[in-house]
Amino acid sequence: MSATSLPTAATAAAAKPKDRRRRKRRDLVGLLYVLPAMALVVVFFVVPIGMTAWMSLHNWPLLGVPRFIGLGNYVRMWSDAGFWSSLRFTLLYTAVATVAIFAVAFPLALFVERPRPLGALFRTVFFLPVVVGFATASLLWVWLLNTDSGLFAPAFQALGFTPQRVNILGDFGTAFPAIVAMVVWKVAGFTMILLMTGLQGIPGDVVEAARIDHAGPLQRFRFITLPLMRRTLGLALILCVTGSMLAFDQFYIMVAGGPRNQTVTAVYTIFNQSFVSFRLGYGSALSIALLAILLVLSVGQLWLLRDREDAR
């Protein structure tokens, strides 16, 4: 609305009814413009969430007749050790994966951001794994990690790291890092591109001015690059955390939640409850709980990364 002319006190009185009509029409047109988007959100987001919430109040078997039980599913969730341990693992995975992805993606972004020979090639190579689907990437790594016919176990043995072939996916201590490595390989390229656009958005003259003031590379990074990238960082962080909190494919395909159910994520628990144990109602309750947790996490991140100017 900032484009509307600011009426002076004199013209305001005379133009009021006309203005109001125009504004009304403008509002109506605006509504028409957002209507398709709203319809999509309502049909594909609001209604399903409403249905999930409704189902979570029932004992809703996949086969058979649903029965209303109020908050019974939520009460049960409270004492469900399996769900809480899967949630703990999901948080651990999110923390580790996010740190690992940023630790790899940020240096890559700094590397590919500046024009250099073969820059486009590097960018493409780093980004290439992103276009592979998660399931495909998981299957590829299952083969790479196979004890007998894979790459790593025989290679480690040949190089003398291990006395015999080790089943990397057999122990949590080796399986978890292997899966995180796969995720970093698969996702870091995307985070790199996001961070790169943020880096390119930093005006050259600001950096130049800092350099003239004798700011070292570390100081420039800390006081110029990071603050000016806050919005980009926020976006990359939220995408990364949300994606990790909803992880399922790689743990389902690569280790089936093993070894010993130690890598069952929250979504994996929801899947098992809904489609293995056929408890759709309970699965819905867990979904709503996970949604609430994600909401809190995202709001928290937005608050942490808010623009201080806006906050004032």
């Binding site: 004890t147 007998d148 015999q164 070894p259």
Partner: peptide
């Protein structure tokens, strides 16, 4: 038994 047995689903 081959080591791969342990994780064969």
């Amino acid at each position: 038994v081959p080591a791969s047995s342990r994780t064969d689903t």
